[in-house]
Every structure is written in structure tokens, then in C-alpha cells.
Computed example of a mutant assay.
Amino acid sequence: MSKTEDENPFFERERDRLVSEVTTGFEELLSSSNILNRKLEEVLGMTKEYETIAALWGSFHELMRGQRNGADVSSEGAPPGLPGTGGHIVTSKQGNES
């Protein structure tokens, strides 16, 4: 029986060492996932900020594309354009004055 008494403390020590390694591994994993979650939240927050800027540039692009398409059409069929953009054409009708 002295052999089993000598083996028990070895297995208990080994078990305690392995439990300690697993605990340390889980703590590192938890810490890493918390860091990852914070970084993901930062990225998502930045994309929300850029949505309004992207919408503004999208509107500008559509306006410029409309201006370019309007320049290709003859002046009679061209859309009037927007004031302040250089595409607004002011016409005056001259009547026959007798």
C-alpha cells in the first residue's frame, strides 16, 4: 500500500497543475475576447460615423452625374439645373412689343 500512497500525491499534484494551466488558459482567452469585443465595437462605431459622410458624397456624385448627363443633351431638352451649381439657366421671354 505504500506504493499507492506515493502515487496519490503525484496524481493530485499533476491534477492541480493541469487545473491551474486550464484556468490560466481560460483567463487569457477571456481577456483576449474582451479586447476583441472592444475593437469590434470601435469599428462598428466608426462605420456609423462614416455613413452620413458616405451619403453626402453619394448625393454629390448623383448631382454631378446628373449635371454631366444634362450637358450631353441639347440645350432645349436639358434640365434646368440647380441654382448655385453653374447649371441653372435663366431665360427670358421677349414678346413682340408694338
Rank of each mutant, 00 (worst) to 15 (best):
L29R: 11
G25C: 14
I35T: 04
S74L: 09
T23E: 07
R15Y: 08
K48Q: 04
G25V: 11
G95L: 12
G25N: 12
S32R: 15
G77L: 11
G66T: 11
A71C: 12
E49D: 12
D16E: 02
S75L: 11
L44D: 04
G84E: 08
Y50Q: 15
T91C: 02
E7Q: 10
E62C: 04
D72F: 12
Y50G: 04
A78Q: 08
E14Y: 13
G87T: 11
K39P: 08
E97N: 14
G70S: 14
S33N: 02
N34E: 06
G81H: 11
W57Y: 13
R17W: 07
S98T: 14
M1G: 04
G66N: 11
S33Y: 01
S74Q: 01
L30E: 05
L18F: 13
S32P: 05
L40K: 10
L56E: 10
T47G: 00
K93C: 05
H88P: 00
H61G: 07
P9K: 15
E12P: 04
E14H: 11
G84M: 04
T47V: 15
D6K: 14
P83G: 06
E41I: 10
G70K: 12
S59V: 06
N69S: 00
M1C: 08
V19G: 03
A55F: 13
L40H: 02
E14D: 09
T47F: 11
N34D: 02
L30N: 12
P80W: 06
G66P: 00
T24V: 07
P9G: 02
Q94C: 06
K39S: 07
S59F: 05
N96Q: 13
I53P: 01
L36C: 01
E41C: 05
G84V: 08
S59G: 07
M1W: 11
G84K: 02
I53L: 04
N8D: 02
I35L: 01
G25A: 13
N69W: 00
F60M: 08
G77V: 10
E42M: 02
R38V: 11
N37E: 09
F26Y: 15
H88C: 08
L56I: 13
K93R: 05
S2K: 14
G95H: 12
G87W: 00
E97C: 12
K48E: 04
I53Q: 03
L44N: 09
M64C: 06
E76Y: 10
S31K: 12
Y50F: 12
S31T: 10
Y50E: 03
Q94W: 13
F26H: 15
P80E: 01
E21A: 09
V43D: 00
